[in-house]
Write a protein that binds this DNA or RNA. Structure first.
Lengths: 215, 215
DNA sequence: ACCTGAACACCGTTCAAGT
DNA sequence: ACCTGAACACCGTTCAAGT
């Protein structure tokens, strides 16, 4: 592929290559130079497609969030439609983040003002408004749900970055722990990123309970 | 100050200098080289105090979280003690993050397995246990509160990083917005980092409501 | 219009050497 | 023991030049 006036790749190709690096080597490895190299280009060529690294990251975020706001509730007619709708959007957001290793670092690395980000915010506010909350409370509730999902993902990422410590060698007596309750909850996997789906959903359910109770 | 076997500064001095750079120039500006320069040292000298940049950041996190777990409930005897206790710890965590610009990027940049991080987790779990939740539920509840506070701070940081857009020039007719509810809630300041204290506390209250209702 | 290559001002970290 | 200086393999971005 010789240099020339023919565009050899698309913006989408670049975003795809960037995601591949993100998922395999982490957020810090997503450099302009690495992405360019993966595509067989020089770093400077990328500046023909995106004006800055930040613009590339914004495009990545938009792709990550594409479709989240339109997430369907599926087939659980037991609950009111709006409650399933909130769950569907929140679950889709969580699933997108969980499905792309390193993506929470991407999401928290800069502004979240893209069209898709706003779609997600709007969808959540609309669902809470349907549930009977006033305009202001619905906006606050949507914000709280976004915070909960993003915060949980950030804690998961922190857990994933934690080097697993080898258990202390057996001794005859134990120092009393300063964190007995935290250690007793280790089997839940909350701080190792190994919590099951039900565990993850629980907190969101409780938040929604509390938010709806204010209606 | 000549080079020599006398230790000219302390680890605390380095952490302080790093925080100054963090708050004035942002997380990305906290480089080993910049911190060293601020102290009049060469970059390599810092490796006498900390084995890596990550170790310095871990020390920063520990200092940031120092005392949060011991936050006092203050003088609001209207509510049960444990509820005020949850609020006190959550508010202290939020206040620490809000009081140090850029600190949420620090907190989400790596593992959160320090002694002080665990103190915060333990304090929250203990408060929920006092409130009557079972061991597992208390652990999940504590985790949810940490996620809420960190997630809200992450959204605040994203808002702070968003370039404020100049309002569109007045036109005779308006395109119907795709995000009417989101835009109608702009006065709350949720997406500009300008929300007031009551607004920030509201989400946390609703979460705690929902968590306690499961007891 | 698209791309290369050189360059600038950075980065974390290692290593040999100085006092 | 503490610190410097040189070095290595990186970074984002700009700019002149090539096709």
């Amino acid at each position: 592929m010789k240099p020339g006036p023919r565009r050899s790749i698309s913006q989408a190709d670049i975003v795809d290559a960037a995601f591949e690096i993100l998922e395999e080597k982490g957020f810090a490895a997503v450099s302009v130079r690495a992405v360019a190299a993966a595509l067989g280009l020089t770093p400077t060529a990328l500046y023909t497609y995106f004006p800055s690294k930040g613009a590339l990251q914004a495009a990545m975020i938009e792709q990550l969030l594409a479709g989240v706001a339109e997430a369907d509730a599926g087939s659980e007619p037991a609950e009111p439609a709006w409650r399933e709708r909130i769950h569907a959007v929140a679950a889709a957001l969580r699933a997108r983040i969980a499905g792309h290793a390193g993506s929470i670092a991407l999401l928290t690395s800069g502004p979240l003002d893209g069209e898709r980000s706003r779609d997600v915010a709007e969808a959540l506010i609309a669902a809470f408004a349907e549930a009977g909350l006033g305009a202001d409370e619905a906006a606050r509730a949507g914000h709280a749900v976004r915070a909960q999902v993003i915060g949980a993902a950030a804690l998961d990422a922190a857990a994933a970055a934690t080097p697993e410590q080898t258990p202390a060698p057996q001794t005859l007596w134990k120092e009393p722990s300063r964190h007995p309750r935290l250690e007793a909850s280790a089997h839940l996997g909350l701080d190792t990123g190994e919590a099951d789906e039900a565990s993850r959903r629980w907190a969101l359910d409780r938040l929604i309970d509390g938010l709806l109770a204010s209606a």
